[in-house]
C-alpha cells in the first residue's frame, strides 16, 4: 500500500512537470503583453505600427521601418536559403553516396551549431568588405543581411526537407523510373512534390529563425531606422531595435522597445500557428 501512495505522488509530480511548459508560455505572454501593450496605447497603435519615424528623444516612436526591415531581410534570406537548402537536401537524400553523406550530414549539423555571434563576426569581416567592393558604400544593408541569414537558415531547411523527402515511399520513385524518366526527373517530378507540405513546414520554420535572429543581423545590417530604398540600403530589424537601445532606454522609450518585442512576438506566434497547421495537414 505504501508503494501505491508513492506511485500516486510521482504521477502528480510528472504531471506538474508537464505543466511547466504551459506555465512558461503563460508567464512569457503575460509579461510581454502587460509591459508592451500600455506603451502601444500611449503612443497610439496606428502611430506605433505605421509611423515612419523613430526619434526617441522627441518621443516619436514609429516602428514601420523596422517591421518592413524584418520582412525584407527575412524574404531575402528565404530567396537565398530555400533553393540552396532544398537542392542540398535532395542531393543528400537521392544523389550522394554514403561516403559523401557521412561528411555532409555532420557539416550541416555543425552549421546549425555555430553561434550567431560567430556568424555575425564572419559577416562583418568577410561579407561586408566584399559588398563594399561590389556596390560601394558601407557594405552593410538588406542584401548583406539576407545573404548571412540565408546561410544561417540552411541547416533548418536542409534537415527538415531531407527528412520529408526520405519519408516519401520508394514506389513513387520506382514508378517514375518505370515510366521512362531519368533519375533526376523521377526525383524532381515524383518524389519532391510528394514531400511538398513537409518542405513547406521547413520553410516556415526557417522564416521563424530568420525573423527572430538578432546578434548576427545587428553586425551587418547597418541599423539605420529608415525604410530601405534598395537592396544595398541600410536596414534595422525589430530584433536589432531592441538590442541596440535597450541598454540606455528609459520610460516611454523603454516601453516602446518592449512593444517592439510584442509585435515581433505576435509575428512569431502567427508563424508558429502556420507551422503547426501545415505540419498537421501534412500528417
Amino acid at each position: 500500500m505504501v508503494s501505491k501512495g508513492k506511485e500516486k505522488v510521482m504521477h502528480i509530480v510528472f504531471m506538474l512537470a508537464a505543466c511547466g511548459s504551459i506555465l512558461a508560455v503563460i508567464v512569457i505572454c503575460l509579461f510581454m503583453f502587460a509591459n508592451g501593450v500600455p506603451a502601444m496605447a500611449e503612443i497610439g497603435l496606428k502611430d506605433f505600427l505605421l509611423g515612419k519615424k523613430w526619434i526617441p528623444n522627441q518621443n516619436i516612436f514609429g516602428i514601420f521601418p523596422m517591421i518592413i526591415g524584418s520582412i525584407y531581410v527575412t524574404a531575402g534570406a528565404i530567396i537565398i536559403g530555400v533553393p540552396i537548402g532544398l537542392l542540398c537536401a535532395i542531393f543528400m537524400a537521392h544523389f550522394c553516396s554514403s561516403k559523401i553523406y557521412k561528411i555532409l550530414k555532420p557539416a550541416v549539423e555543425l552549421l546549425a551549431g555555430i553561434p550567431s555571434i560567430v556568424y555575425g563576426f564572419f559577416g562583418l569581416m568577410v561579407i561586408v568588405p566584399i559588398m563594399q567592393n561590389m556596390f560601394g558604400g558601407s557594405g552593410k544593408g538588406v542584401l548583406t543581411a539576407s545573404i548571412l541569414l540565408g546561410i544561417m537558415i540552411l541547416p533548418t531547411i536542409i534537415s527538415v526537407a531531407e527528412t520529408n523527402i526520405r519519408a516519401v515511399p520508394e514506389s513513387y520513385y520506382e514508378g517514375a523510373l518505370a515510366l521512362g524518366d531519368t533519375h533526376e526527373r523521377a526525383v524532381f517530378k515524383a518524389v519532391v512534390p510528394a514531400a511538398k507540405s513537409g518542405i513547406l513546414a521547413g520553410v516556415i520554420l526557417g522564416i521563424g529563425r530568420a525573423i527572430g535572429e538578432t546578434m548576427a543581423v545587428i553586425m551587418i545590417a547597418g541599423n539605420q531606422p529608415i525604410v530601405p530604398d534598395g537592396i544595398t540600403s541600410g536596414v534595422r530589424t525589430m530584433t536589432a531595435n531592441i538590442v541596440l537601445e535597450m541598454g540606455y532606454a528609459a520610460d516611454l522609450h523603454r516601453e516602446a522597445l518592449i512593444a517592439t518585442g510584442v509585435v515581433l512576438f505576435v509575428f512569431i506566434l502567427l508563424i508558429n500557428l502556420l507551422f503547426s497547421a501545415v505540419k498537421r495537414k501534412g500528417e
Binding site: 508567464v27 509591459n35 529563425r209 525573423i211 527572430g212 530584433t239
Partner: peptide, 25 residues
Amino acid sequence: KIVSLTTETLAGIPSIIYGLFGYLM
C-alpha cells in the same frame, strides 16, 4: 495536446524574446 502545443511554441520563440522576458521578469 496542450503541452505539445506550448512546447512547440517555446521552441519557436527567438532568443531576443526570451531575453526581453528575462529582463522584464
